[in-house]
C-alpha cells in the first residue's frame, strides 16, 4: 500500500501533499509515497509536526495508487481534493496543469 499525507495549508486552505521528499507539494505528481507502514508513520509524524508549527491543518494519511504512470488517491473524496471540483475543470489543481 502506498500512502501520502494530505492536509490544507493554514494561510490559504489550499490542499497540500507530503511524501518522502523534503517539502510539501501542491500536486501529487511529484510525490514519493511511503511504501510501508514505517515510512507512512514517519510521514504522519512530519505532518503532525507541520501542524504543530501551524503550517498545515488536518494532516492525514491517504492511500494512493499509480494510474497511467501518475499517483492518484484511491478514495473519491481525496481524488476530488487532488484535482478540484469535477463540475468546474477550470478551477483547482486540474486547471493549473
Amino acid at each position: 500500500m502506498h500512502q501520502v499525507v494530505i492536509a490544507n495549508r493554514l494561510t490559504d486552505g489550499i490542499v497540500v501533499f507530503l511524501g518522502r521528499e523534503p517539502e510539501w507539494l501542491e500536486g501529487l505528481e511529484n510525490c514519493q509515497p511511503a511504501q510501508d507502514a514505517a515510512q507512512a508513520e514517519a510521514l504522519l509524524a512530519r505532518g503532525a509536526a507541520a501542524e504543530a508549527e501551524q503550517f498545515v491543518v488536518g494532516p492525514e494519511l491517504i492511500e494512493v495508487e499509480l494510474r497511467e504512470g501518475v499517483w492518484v488517491p484511491v478514495k473519491m473524496r481525496e481524488a476530488m481534493r487532488s484535482r478540484g471540483p469535477s463540475v468546474r475543470s477550470d478551477l483547482g489543481k486540474q486547471a493549473e496543469n
Binding site: 490559504d12 486552505g13 489550499i14 490542499v15 508549527e53 501551524q54 491543518v57 488536518g58
Partner: peptide, 24 residues
Amino acid sequence: GKITEEQFRPLRLMNGLYLQLHAY
C-alpha cells in the same frame, strides 16, 4: 501561531468560515 486550530475552529465557525475540501 498564537492559537491552535482546536482553539480557532469554534471562533471561525461562529463567523461563518469553514474549511472544506479545496480551501476555506
